[in-house]
Design a protein around this nucleic acid. Sequence first.
DNA 1: CCGGAATATTAGCCAGGCTAACTTAGTTGT
DNA 2: ACAACTAAGTTAGCCTGGCTAATATTCCGG
Lengths: 140, 140
Amino acid sequence: MRDDPTHLAEQVSTVLRHLVLLLRRTVAGQPVTSQQYGVLGSLEGGPRRMTELAEEHAVQLPTMTVQINRLEDAGLVARGSDPADARVRTVELTAEGRDRLRAVRQARIAHLTRELEALTEDERATLAAALPVLAKLGRS
Amino acid sequence: MRDDPTHLAEQVSTVLRHLVLLLRRTVAGQPVTSQQYGVLGSLEGGPRRMTELAEEHAVQLPTMTVQINRLEDAGLVARGSDPADARVRTVELTAEGRDRLRAVRQARIAHLTRELEALTEDERATLAAALPVLAKLGRS
DNA sequence: CCGGAATATTAGCCAGGCTAACTTAGTTGT
DNA sequence: ACAACTAAGTTAGCCTGGCTAATATTCCGG
């Protein structure tokens, strides 16, 4: 029972549910939704094509089309074209989108930071040690 | 920089996004959605009232009404009444609901267990140590 | 230059949130 | 005793965010 993957799985499952609820509360009422924030983040390094964005966010292309439409309507991104291939549409941040991204990131990090400051230094160290393990999950 | 909550927050943020995607993949294509599974779980200990369920899942009452409607249509739960207060509706698992819950739980745990078995014993220990800390987040 | 592959979009469906408005039933105060 | 308030649920209508199927366009290979 000391190293029982099944038992651990049950505990992980419980904690995961807790984290999902926490995330929902964290994100509620921000000026962009969680998904929009994610997409904006993908554009930080420069223009991307639709297919790339869809893959990166593990959604189908039509889903991403709708997302980008909304971001475009909000003035946060702009569509462009690839001169080398007329089929591809590129998407890039507008100045406003870049500002918005920075602001939201700021807010999210600040929120999480506050949560983490409520922990002891030991607890933070324990958490930090586990992050690489968590990141490894699902890569198998 | 060795114990910097802000820096840790950024890493946690990244890992959280990874976990959300992992969860989405895990859950896709199961016979009940993630939320339905959660509600069924809440009913395992016996009948509950609508308000309790809504609070427990951090949603508004109308949202829970719709959820329960769907579960009722699917034959997994049944509505009842509180003899002491005609305003309250109770919700309980049907036999089929109980079976379904068991099956889905089995599948989810099995899936996660497989992921965890891919880790080393040390990594599992690291993860296990961090779970109480993660559970503590957001309770402040 | 024609047929198949690749890139996006449109349309239409569903789950799962929300608020506002409504009904019904208990509770309270005079 | 009853009017007014409060509590519990539901209904209606809206939004986001997924999906698939169908459709345009464009590119590329023979």
